[in-house]
Simulated scan of single mutants.
Amino acid sequence: MDEKRIAVIFKAFCDENRVKIIELLRHGEKCACKLLEELNISQPTLSHHMKILCDAGIVVGRKEGKWTHYSISYSGVEQAKQYLQGLLPENNEL
C-alpha cells in the first residue's frame, strides 16, 4: 500500500463526526436519514463525511430509492488493520 492510500484511509478516522458515524455503523447498515437524526448535522455535512469514508474504503453505500444506505466495509477495515499491524516490530518487542 502506498503512502497516499494510507493517508486517505487514516484521514477517515481523523474527525469526531466520522468516528461517530463509524460507531453507529458498527451496529449494522443505516440509512443516511437515520444517520442525520443521530448526528445533528446538515445533509451536506453528512454527504461530505460519507464521501471521505467511502473514498477511504472504510464505508460502502448502496442506493435504495432516494436514500443511500451505508455499512462498514470489512475489506476496508482489514486494510487499515493490516497496515497498523505492519508497524509492529517482527519480534513483537515494544
Rank of each mutant, 00 (worst) to 15 (best):
R18A: 00
I22G: 02
I6N: 08
V8N: 11
L88A: 14
Y83I: 06
H49K: 03
S42A: 08
E37W: 02
K63I: 08
L84E: 08
K34D: 14
H27D: 11
E38Y: 08
G28I: 00
C54T: 15
Q79K: 15
W67A: 09
K81H: 14
A7P: 01
Q79L: 15
C54W: 01
V8G: 06
I21N: 01
I41V: 13
I72D: 05
P44N: 02
Y70V: 02
L88D: 08
E23V: 08
K63F: 01
M1Y: 09
Q79S: 15
C54D: 07
K30C: 03
D15S: 13
S73P: 02
R18K: 01
V77W: 13
A56V: 05
W67Q: 05
K66P: 04
A7L: 12
I9R: 05
L94T: 12
V77G: 07
I22E: 02
K51Q: 11
V77D: 03
I21V: 05
Y70E: 02
A12D: 00
P44A: 04
I52P: 05
T68F: 10
H69D: 02
E90W: 09
A7V: 08
L84C: 14
S71A: 12
A7T: 07
K30S: 04
K34Q: 10
H27E: 11
V77P: 03
Q43V: 06
W67T: 05
R18E: 00
H69I: 12
H69F: 15
